[in-house]
């Protein structure tokens, strides 16, 4: 008797209301669209996430590796009830956030990966993720942890998350924190922004293609570069080294 093994291994997905796209202006004056990514777009995202697995700063290596695995797992139907949101500026990928619905009332925040720095791109994307859980999926709370000091500042400090230490988080099994509906409502006016509906032309541009980030995070410079360089006139040796490392990442 034949067995449909794939049917056994593949999780049965629960119906989830889609995330309605929104847009916002950044400090730079650029417009950023945040929308739900489709499964078909995952291979493109994997291509952009992969180089970050070798960026050994600000936990990009750790977070990118896990995001890669989570995206691939969802793409290959091995994660239950996952969703992925992308932030785009002029079509370029600026951030990826993802999470899971654990039960109809509980969400699990997975990762926030910002590819543009200095404009609160990651913070806006995280806020959109929380908005999805609380406002759209109607979860009572979302379990959250921070893997980097940046995450600590953005989630633990800004949202003043509640403790759910008795519940291990899916990321590393560490004690969870939680964003409750009450905490989200308290933070909403200060931290959650965005306008809807997204103008048709803007949304079409975002959906047409996810373009590669033009200024993604790069590996740190070699700590011994200064010693090795004969002269660092105008910092050139370091700039050149950075460019060389970027090329190596591009070619890897």
């Amino acid at each position: 008797m034949s067995v449909d093994l794939e049917k056994t291994l593949r999780p049965v997905e629960s119906p989830m209301v889609p995330y309605p796209a929104k847009y916002m202006m950044l400090a730079s004056g650029e417009t950023m669209v945040i929308r739900q990514a489709t499964r078909d777009e995952i291979p493109t995202l994997l291509e952009y996430v992969e180089p970050l697995m070798r960026v050994e700063r600000d936990y990009y290596d750790c977070v990118a590796s896990r995001v890669y695995s989570e995206l691939l797992g969802w793409y290959r139907y091995r994660v239950q009830d996952e969703y992925v949101l992308v932030a785009q500026i002029d079509g370029e990928l600026a951030a990826i956030v993802n999470g899971r619905q654990v039960t109809p009332t509980l969400g699990m925040s997975l990762h926030t990966l910002a590819l543009r720095r200095g404009l609160r791109v990651g913070a806006h994307a995280f806020a959109a993720k929380m908005e999805y859980h609380i406002d759209i999926l109607d979860h009572d709370e979302v379990l959250v942890v921070a893997e980097s000091p940046i995450g600590f500042r953005r989630w633990m400090i800004e949202y003043q998350l509640a403790e759910r230490f008795e519940t291990p988080h899916e990321l590393g099994g560490v004690p969870s924190y939680a964003l409750t509906r009450e905490l989200f409502d308290r933070a909403r006016a200060k931290l959650v922004v965005g306008r809807r509906p997204v103008p048709a032309e803007l949304l079409a541009k975002a959906e047409e293609a996810i373009l590669p980030p033009s200024d993604p995070p790069t590996p740190p410079m070699d700590a011994l570069a200064a010693t090795r360089a004969a002269y660092d006139a105008t910092g050139t040796a370091l700039i050149q080294q950075r460019r060389r490392q970027e090329r190596e990442v591009d070619h890897a």
């Binding site: 400090a27 730079s28 004056g29 404009l119 959650v192 306008r195």
Partner: peptide, 13 residues
């Protein structure tokens, strides 16, 4: 616009 006038400015800045 991005740091003062837009609806998002208060959060951006």
């Amino acid at each position: 616009d991005g740091v003062l006038d837009s609806p998002e400015a208060f959060t951006n800045n």
